[in-house]
Nucleic acid binder design. Structure first.
Lengths: 370, 370
DNA sequence: CTGAAAGCGCTAACAG
DNA sequence: CTGTTAGCGCTTTCAG
């Protein structure tokens, strides 16, 4: 996909803008100190809001910093400081994705969030690719060597107990995202996937659907557990619950498996076939939609479908998919914030839970009359 | 979408693996020097393959390095070295993407490639978000301050002439990806999008299509120009060219615009309506597919469609989309390699052109008989 | 071919 | 509340 153009101000194409003043703008902390008539240490303290500084001194230093456009050099800070101002985000080995290209949207969204927060706190983000448990040692080593200050550990890595236990044993700062079991991490970010899934199911029930399938769910994943629980909760809470027929179908979180499972589920005689299919992920839903097209089942009249995640895919499917948004960017932000707070000694424990919004599109409709 | 699980070796869940030896494994260059009986300087030279070292000394130092599992600390290198071992990849301001979530796959694929190469050369990658021309100064400043060594500048930033001119004027190391105009950069990575598009069109013609529309194309983008040129080349080279009816429809590279344009193009009377639509991007193709579904045009029997890019989306559409793969990961690798070579004084000029593979799926078929 | 000295820019630890 | 003194781990520069 072509990315959108950067806005180009008209008429400047032939004048490459020049830098403000000095040819090599490497303003150091000493330049600031000298110009402000204080010691470098005072400047350092002002930069980091640390220790007690007289308000006037502080204001003056701040002014000089702005005048000189001073920015501390992260390498120097990392080298001398107690911890590295770089946060690692632990992501599965990307080359595994490469062959199939099944989508990097979850990862990139997390990254954007983390980047956002880190930028404003003057931290950097490093992607740490993880292949298996042996990499845990590497993670620890990077912190001890002050290569990395702390980690963001999103699912699926956050489901890896060894990893969490080891990080914890070494007292590293790390925040898990969507961890299956949070007992091993003091900092955690979660999405309320259960409530959103329940609302989605509720919507199906409101539309009159009484034969509903739920497709998805490796049980070792928090997302699977929570989303399935939401589905069941909606059904069990319904006054009509005894007349609702539902089925749970296991499959991985991906398209191909969704297609296969979809074909199996939808090939049943029409009187038994579900009129609504709720999927663990949009990827699975895309597979089910493909299956329905292949079986010439009209959507949404003959079959309602919904998914979960709402990355780029959902609205590009036909019919456009009803789903719930996983707020991955916000989750990345929250996790980065937790790690930074921990490193700077501001908080030792914290759980952030974010809501998931419903996104209703054309893939659902009233249940067909039998 | 749920990411795939990291492989968890069985039976290790309750034994968090411990680090090899020392509690704080920060092996420094001095540790290596001492153990090897040489000076730190010699170790440094061995690490960087620089200067002339006696083969024996070299081998011995290398052995000790491996024994101690020594890894140089990037912050220290950046601080003392002539350039920073961090490469910046210039990407549009991600929060612009956030509202629409139209997909981050191109960016992430580039990133993966860059990461791959950087890791093996012991460089880091930093994402540099760019909003507009003012950020150019920031880019230059970061290099002068040794925050960043050099840049990868992929489209769309590589279409921004001011940016390129400024980087060049400051003699920074940077490699453009898919630049519209390469005169301002000595290092460039391109994909042969023209040939692939031509092959795609050829395929349509071979299938008997004689009324073909090409949808897409902001002319300031290299991808637009090259892909459209490929389309026209195929038609003009065809023996039947005088009986081929084609149309070029402009639109942005995205889904919504593709849908709108698709509706317009396909709403024509059937005798005039194209039997094949070739799209600038898979995103546009998804829009056209949605339009065709809405107009109840059967695919591929009544309409053949193809796109370009082959990220996650293409195979998840119904019908699965025929397209060409933009080798974004490879392009990211190639660009990173060029920048690293330039920084290390190995090459001053270089153009790498990568092929795009065709991916035939179910969205194309023989032209319907009129 | 190898080494010694000096310092990159910043902050910890300790003094005032 | 502020300053001084030492480095962090590596590479540059200049001598052997």
């Amino acid at each position: 996909m072509l990315a959108p153009c950067i806005r180009i101000p008209a008429g400047t194409v032939h004048d490459p803008p020049m830098l403000e003043k000095s040819p090599h703008s490497k303003v150091t902390i000493n330049d600031v100190a000298e110009k402000a008539g204080v010691s470098a240490m005072t400047v350092s303290r002002v930069m980091r809001n640390q220790g007690k500084i007289a308000p006037e001194t502080r204001a003056h230093v701040l002014k000089v910093i702005r005048q000189l456009n001073y920015e501390p050099l992260s390498s120097a800070r990392n080298l001398s400081g107690a911890y590295s101002r770089t946060i690692g985000i632990v992501i599965p080995y990307a080359n595994d994705f490469r062959e199939f290209r099944h989508g990097y949207e979850y990862e990139y969204a997390l990254l954007i969030g983390a980047l956002n927060v880190c930028k404003s706190h003057d931290f950097a983000v490093n992607i740490i690719e993880t292949r298996d448990s042996n990499d845990v040692n590497l993670l620890v080593k990077k912190v001890l060597a002050r290569q990395i200050g702390g980690y963001i550990v999103p699912a699926p890595a956050s489901e890896y107990l060894d990893l969490l236990k080891t990080l914890k044993a070494h007292k590293l700062a790390f925040s898990t995202i969507s961890a299956h079991d949070q007992t091993d991490s003091d900092l955690t970010v979660l999405a309320d996937e259960r409530t959103a899934t329940q609302a989605l199911t509720q919507k199906m029930l409101d539309l009159g659907h009484r034969r509903i399938a739920f497709i998805g769910g490796a049980p070792e994943r928090r997302a699977s557990v929570e989303r399935q629980a939401g589905f069941l909760a909606a059904i069990h809470a319904h006054p009509d619950r005894d007349r609702i027929v539902y089925a749970l179908h296991d499959c991985t979180a991906f398209f191909d498996d969704g297609l296969e499972t979809g074909l199996r589920v939808l090939s049943q005689p029409q009187s038994q076939r579900p009129t609504a299919v709720q999927c663990l992920t949009d990827d699975i839903a895309a597979g089910v939609i493909a299956a329905a097209h292949r079986l010439k089942i009209p959507m949404p009249e003959g079959l309602s479908i919904c998914g979960f995640d709402n990355f780029g895919l959902a609205r590009k499917l036909s019919p456009a998919l009803t789903t719930a948004s996983l707020p991955a960017e916000d989750m990345g932000e929250a996790a980065a914030l937790q790690v930074i707070d921990a490193l700077e000694g501001r908080a030792r424990q914290s759980v952030t839970t974010l809501p998931c919004k419903l996104v209703v599109r054309e893939s659902i409709a009233s249940a067909p009359l039998d």
